[in-house]
């Protein structure tokens, strides 16, 4: 029986398929207007990848923003629970995970069994999330790779203190148009620092202070990861596939449910 985890995020939908705890496939697809269709498309793609039947024996756990609206889901779980299980699967030594997604950021403190001890999230504002970084990249007409590279040459970060994405954006614009303009690398480092300080505060709030892993699409943004590590004062574990950690956790939970059902 396949255990399938589907994480329906605000930009992308992630699917992970496990069989008896063994990893089979993961697929990232675009989130469409309706959660139901996004999840259906994502699952079909994943099943195609492993050449499974169209409708195999399966247990589906959904999570993320649209999790509740999926009719073929067997259970929906909170993103925090999924992150904890997912990170325990791919980075067993981690005791906390920072997840920076497109529109939210979350820090989860976990124990060795992948159970949630505490969590903090920030989902009221886009500052400190992937969309914010994307917006900034667009504003400066740079790719993420160029941003990462340029930030390395900065000696200090520009002041970006706005705690709101819109205000922060206007701060960046005023740095660009200043006479003389603030050097690009400094602005980029400033952006990274503003995101990092938000995350750091959340870690502090729940006492996540060691063995921290990083997940979500933003974990692929090298410059930001480097800045975040410096701010937090320790290296972060970045799994091979940071984007799919929550979906992986959902699949692990699906596996647990299958075990529970067979035990009964």
């Amino acid at each position: 029986m396949l255990s399938i985890g589907i994480d329906i995020g605000s930009l992308t939908t992630k699917t992970v398929v496990l069989n008896n705890g063994r990893f089979l496939a993961s697929v990232v697809s675009e989130t469409l207007d309706e959660a139901e269709i996004s999840a259906q498309v994502a699952m079909t793609k994943a099943l195609e990848r492993i050449d499974a039947d169209e409708d195999p024996l399966r247990f589906v756990v959904t999570t993320g923003a649209g999790a509740k609206g999926v009719s073929f889901s067997d259970r929906s779980k909170a993103i925090t629970t999924c992150l904890a299980r997912g990170i325990a699967y791919c980075v067993p030594e981690a005791r906390a995970v920072i997840d920076i997604g497109a529109e939210s950021s979350t820090v989860v403190k976990t124990n060795e069994r992948g159970k949630v001890l505490d969590w903090a999230n920030h989902d009221k504002c886009a500052a400190g999330t992937g969309i914010f970084l994307q917006q900034m990249a667009k504003l400066m007409k740079l790719s993420f790779e160029e941003m990462s590279e340029l930030s390395e040459t900065a000696s200090k970060g520009a002041d970006i203190t706005g705690t709101c994405a819109v205000f922060a954006e206007s701060e960046v614009i005023s740095h660009v148009h200043r006479v003389p303009p603030t050097p690009m690398p400094e602005i980029i480092l400033g952006i990274y620092l503003s995101v990092s300080s938000r995350i750091k505060t959340m870690c502090k709030r729940i006492g996540a202070n060691e063995k921290i892993a990083l997940s979500g699409g933003v974990a692929l943004h090298k410059g930001l990861v480097r800045t975040l590590e410096k701010e937090i004062g320790q290296p972060l574990f970045v799994p091979d596939d940071p984007v799919c950690v929550a979906a992986l956790g959902a699949a692990v939970l699906a596996g647990e449910e299958i075990q529970k059902e067979t035990a009964q």
């Binding site: 929906s76 779980k77 909170a78 993103i79 925090t80 629970t81 159970k115 949630v116 001890l117 505490d118 969590w119 999230n121 989902d123």
Partner: peptide, 17 residues
């Protein structure tokens, strides 16, 4: 919906404990 999500996460945390 945002509150519901938080409550769900909270309940799952309590259940895990």
């Amino acid at each position: 919906g945002q509150i519901a999500t938080r409550v769900q996460a909270f309940l799952e945390m309590i259940e895990a404990k």
